[in-house]
Design a protein around this nucleic acid. Structure first.
Lengths: 343, 343
DNA sequence: CTGTTAGCGCATTCAA
DNA sequence: TTGAATGCGCTAACAG
């Protein structure tokens, strides 16, 4: 392996390695004669010198790498955010490392610790929400990070989240305006802040518009396709089944559609459905889907800029930001006026 | 920041740092008295010592990190592979770094160079196929890597690919058996090995079964939704439009469906369609889609094991493997017997 | 069994 | 303007 080092250049240029270091560091305000500067630069170019970033990182405790910790890389919501953050960080000269936790808090912690000990400039985390210790640890150690999509009531820190209360309220209101009184909510993992807030919005609308308030209509715990299918089957099998469904996740929605198909029901004639779906497939679904859609690009952008701000601030304490990003209700064909016969 | 180092432990234990290093290195066959070993271990535990992996990597030139370079993280084909590789590597004690090249060969090269200089144990690459220099460079520098999904005829190296010729042949044959004579092929990025091979399989079947051989039926260049939509519109506007469509990509297929919807055609009555789609949405599409589906889990698994083999082999030259993985034709409702009226 | 020494490649003092 | 010296934290070879 022929890796060119500062020493190699120094030898050829007949100067000291530290001189080479100074010249190649790229800083403007260093005092070096034009002669040696030029000489060193040309030699460096000829040898195609690249600084050993590992050594640099070791020396400077600065890696120009940030880690993105997400629960599920193959979920279009997260991969969309990842895509956006990658773009932003690349432009800013940072490398992005993406880690998959599979909603496993332990794995999340392992990844985070691993990166701390291997050196990392900051984290963007969609936390798995079981434990908070490792997050608190980040604060204690003053490691820059921002939480995305999910937050902890007990931890005040930089976050970028969606307007979950509002979006769920909007869905429910819209369905209510279409005449629906019995609206089920397939919720996903219970403990998540995201889910709690959506539920809050849903319940608010339920009360406000005098809809059926029935705990059986709220169900599900998990984000898998299977979970969505089972929960949907469950509510559809109730004595008084719902006439509309709000489904709080991408995979969940696929599962819900499958369940509806298996029950030989049609959308939206027999049942209306709104999914929290960020996937282009939604518009090509069996019935083009009315969805809550997140502005993934913007979520990613904002997360990264918030992180960068922290990284650049050094030790100076900057005020904590909590950004809430609007999501959109996109109306397609899966929601319709309630058929009077179904009342 | 209070990072505990070997020195700290050494001081407390009253021994030399190198002794601590030996004990904590975890190797079995080192000669240390039980007394000091226990003492050092307990102190390390109390202080919650974690080796500085940056220093370790710097010293040992071993990072236990591998990089996955993919063109598009938000495409379910790639994110599915990423998910699988992540799982495998995590189990093997490796960290996985995922990079997004946006099909940009320059960005790919930048990422690769960056990781080389920052230290990396190996690469898994889905190459963007414009240039091959940086790939050849990896071989020259004996850096372990494996190519996935796409390969270069000019480069003999470890690869894991799909059975593209066969899969395209299978599709075409199946459609021919349904009576279709005019089958369009929406191809994606021309230059890719994947696409060339699929085209080969398609053409083979076209000849063998005496189907319409018309260059107008082969079209498209790009993998975006828009590209799929435009190409599909194009072929559907031909004087003699096709009665069936093979679409060589995930996003492309969404675009194709949109185009079909916009033309007010129905699937499969007016037109049959088979997509190369690895997304659970396919079964919930406007008409549940007949697809070619890849075994993403297995592709990821095989790629990683091939890479690990290389990494562990050290400098010993091991024979190059070229693995071809079977893909499956999953028949749903988007393909049907040709309506006689359309002939 | 344990300590000493050396050095990975770099950037940053301080001295000349 | 340049050189020399130092150390980041760790491991490995060699002494003792």
């Amino acid at each position: 392996m022929t890796t060119v080092t500062l020493k190699d250049i120094a030898k050829l240029a007949g100067v000291h390695p530290s001189t080479v270091s100074k010249i190649l560091s790229g800083k403007e305000n260093i005092q070096i004669s034009d002669g040696t500067r030029k000489k060193v630069q040309t030699i460096a170019q000829e040898l195609d010198y690249r600084p050993n970033q590992l050594a640099q990182a070791f020396r400077l405790k600065k890696t120009f790498t940030i880690a993105l910790i997400i629960p599920e890389i193959s979920n279009s919501f997260f991969s969309g955010i990842a895509k956006s953050i990658e773009k932003e960080s690349y432009q800013a000269g940072y490398n992005l490392v993406v880690c998959n936790t599979e909603e496993n808090s332990e794995k999340e912690e392992k990844y985070i610790n691993n990166f701390i000990s291997r050196g990392i400039d900051g984290f963007i985390i969609v936390p798995s929400q079981k434990s908070t210790d490792h997050i608190k640890n980040l604060i204690k150690r003053k490691i820059p990070f921002v939480l995305v999509d999910r937050s902890f009531p007990s931890i005040q820190t930089n976050t970028v989240v969606s307007d979950n209360v509002i979006s769920a309220y909007k869905c429910t209101k819209y369905l209510s305006e279409l005449g629906h009184k019995r609206i089920a909510f397939i919720r996903g993992i219970n403990e998540l802040s995201t889910i709690r807030l959506r539920l809050e919005g849903y319940l608010k609308a339920v009360k406000e518009f005098n809809l059926d308030q029935d705990s059986e209509l709220i169900c599900g715990n998990g984000f898998t396709l299977e979970s969505g299918r089972n929960s949907t089957k469950e509510v559809l099998s109730l004595e008084k089944p719902p006439t509309a469904l709000i489904v709080s996740g991408n995979m969940l929605t696929i599962g819900a559609i499958k369940a509806i198909m298996e029950k030989k029901l049609t959308i939206p004639n027999d049942i209306s459905i709104i999914g929290y779906v960020d996937d282009d497939w939604a518009s090509c679904a069996i019935t083009p889907l009315t969805v809550i859609s997140h502005q993934l690009k913007y979520i990613g952008k904002k997360s990264f800029s918030l992180l960068l701000e922290q990284i650049k601030s050094g030790d100076i304490d900057i005020p904590v930001s909590r950004v809430e990003i609007e999501s959109k209700l996109i109306i397609r064909d899966s929601t319709a006026q309630l058929d009077e016969n179904l009342k």
